[in-house]
Design a protein around this nucleic acid. Structure first.
Lengths: 360, 360
DNA sequence: GTGAAAGCGCTAACAC
DNA sequence: GTGTTAGCGCTTTCAC
């Protein structure tokens, strides 16, 4: 009926023990490593292991006390370069720590996020890492606090990666990047080039990421004695298509805008495409900047000025802090730095569509 | 010493049973679902579960007969868009099938690939999916065959995703895409536009992916009675940086080349950047095409003509065939179609740097 | 419809 | 040094 070779079941310690002429316990000791075993016995056991091509049953091993040696990793969408790079950091560090990585996606579905976390709880993973901005409602926050405690009780550590802390009394590790600082620097960069009407494309009310970035955006204006035109903070999802449509509308309705701050590089890609389609030059007519510094940012045309996030470090740190939380006991909230990387998509403002020889 | 609340251990079926005033077996039956239980008992049990915030121990459950309900996924690098999208397909389908995803990376390290697969074997995953081109040596092939059998005995199914079959007698599922066909179509497209000197950038001897693509490339030439200039098949890794340097060299050494077929879109991005830096226009002076159709392909400038791979379907199919291999018993080798998507990076050839009014 | 008991594969006390 | 035994948390016969 079935295609696989049933009948010969998977070998167990018993099989190995029988073949090597020792007891199962001895086999376990040899394989475990940290126990004195006679060299001759070890040799015989190892030979039996090799001959039978034996591997231990991870479930059985995990059942017996210890942890399952896994790290769970929850993202919205593995496909986004930001997530993928954090994932890479997580995976690399997990491997170095001798852990396996469990991955789950939520696709903007809060219910699914909860379901997924329960699954992770069942797995008794060493850490459950939540990546990306969380939602900013009290209800959501309460659920997270509850989850942190549930996981803690199950022996897992909740790690918030790229989203703010839930409070000091909550058993969770937080690894953030300086979201606001990045937005501040970038906005200052634009402002100091002379831009005064900057549109922020891709605000997402109730997303923690947005809140921080808008704060930085606003503070940069305030610090220069400028005011933010709130109509220029445009809501939208972090999608290429949003950058496209929002830019078209902006072009039509707000000829005074000289720079666009896209919430993510993905959105910026859409913006650039819309500009090209409308024959608006970047950066001569309009400057464009992004956020994330994904690898293809430098392949866009023009190469995109953007905010670099230390994605790899974010992932590695998350794993490191969670696993060694005894050593890092007083360092369970870390903020990694961000910085802008200047490429070719920003220039001083000009009056759009009226090309003056110099950029004044 | 430790930060987590030790002492109160994780609840078990026993705790739930005690609280609900039933036996552990009954709790298991309620939670399992598929067994007749009195409505009143069920209610009491469910209440206890909720009150204790109980979740089952996945390891213990897996130990008892069944599978671990996980799918293992081995890629070279999660960061590449191609892998990420296949991963997404795998993850989505796995979720639909009630499975969790285990992810591992190999980073071009064959030894690590083997180690990783042993880890997966320990986990008794339902399927172990290997994504991306394999290496073409007999030794490697033999090891794969051996692994297929080992996994089969452990109750796991080996799935080769995007690489050729190991032979009909090997217990493995193969989900390929028409690698050669894509290369053939694309090359024909270029040829029919009038290009005669096409460089293939990013050949990788001993990689199965390359072999298939070069075959398609060559066959397209042959079918039109043309011959391939073997010097134009240039070795290199699938990296942006390779596209960059190889193009610079090509520009300097081979002014007769009118089109570049990049092995991947990533390489194509490097090619386009090099062209821009050298003030060579695309597609007017040189046409460029890629392979993969990653999302940012349409954001390159000019938008890239490339070969579309059904990544999502690849991942989903891999999972589906592996899990339901009894139903799909005679369909364990599937080849999904590829097709070219024409955008703006190809035009008929001109004599480079000498701009003629029409493209002859 | 429910309980008691056995056992999955492994490791950690505890003997010898 | 090595064997024996118990038990991790769960499911699943087998009784009742």
């Amino acid at each position: 009926m079935t295609m696989r070779s049933d009948g010969d079941r998977r070998y167990t310690v018993k099989d190995v023990a029988a073949r090597a002429g020792v007891s199962p316990a001895t086999v376990s000791r040899v394989l475990g490593g940290t126990y004195p075993v006679a060299a001759s016995t070890r040799t015989r056991v190892m030979r039996a292991v090799r001959e039978l091509d034996y591997v231990a049953n991870a479930q059985a091993r995990a059942l017996k006390g210890a942890t399952s040696k896994t790290i769970a990793f929850v993202v919205n969408d593995v496909t986004g370069p930001f997530f993928a790079h954090v994932a890479q950091g997580v995976e690399k560090q997990a491997t170095e720590e001798g852990r396996l990585c469990l991955v789950c996606t939520t696709h903007d579905d809060t219910a699914r996020e909860l379901a997924v976390i329960d699954l992770m709880r069942e797995q008794s993973a060493d850490a459950v890492i939540l990546v990306g901005g969380g939602i900013e409602t009290d209800e959501y926050r309460d659920r997270m606090v509850h989850l942190a405690h549930s996981l803690d009780k199950a022996g897992s550590r909740l790690v918030l990666c790229g989203r703010p802390s839930l409070g000091d009394d909550v058993p969770a590790t937080v690894v953030e990047y300086d979201n606001e600082g990045g937005a501040y620097s970038m906005t200052s960069h634009l402002l100091s080039q002379g831009h005064r009407k900057i549109a922020y494309l891709g605000a997402h009310t109730s997303l923690t990421t947005t809140t921080a970035r808008i704060n930085g955006f606003t503070r940069a204006h305030t610090d220069m004695g400028l005011e933010v035109d709130s109509e220029l903070i445009i809501e939208g999802r972090f999608l290429h298509s949003f950058g496209l449509t929002a830019t078209r509308r902006l072009l039509a309705e707000r000829p005074d805008v000289t720079a666009i701050f896209a919430a993510t590089d993905m959105v910026a890609a859409g913006v650039l495409q819309a500009l090209r389609q409308s024959d608006v030059r970047c950066p001569e007519d309009i400057s464009v900047v992004g956020y994330d510094d994904v690898p293809f940012a430098s392949d866009l045309y023009p190469a995109l000025t953007t905010v670099h996030i230390p994605t790899d470090e974010l992932g590695r740190t998350a794993v490191r802090l969670a696993i060694h939380r005894d050593e890092y006991a007083h360092n369970q909230h870390v903020v990694l730095g961000t910085h802008i990387v200047v490429r070719d998509s920003v220039a001083p403002p000009t009056i759009r569509r009226v090309r003056t020889p110099d950029g004044t």
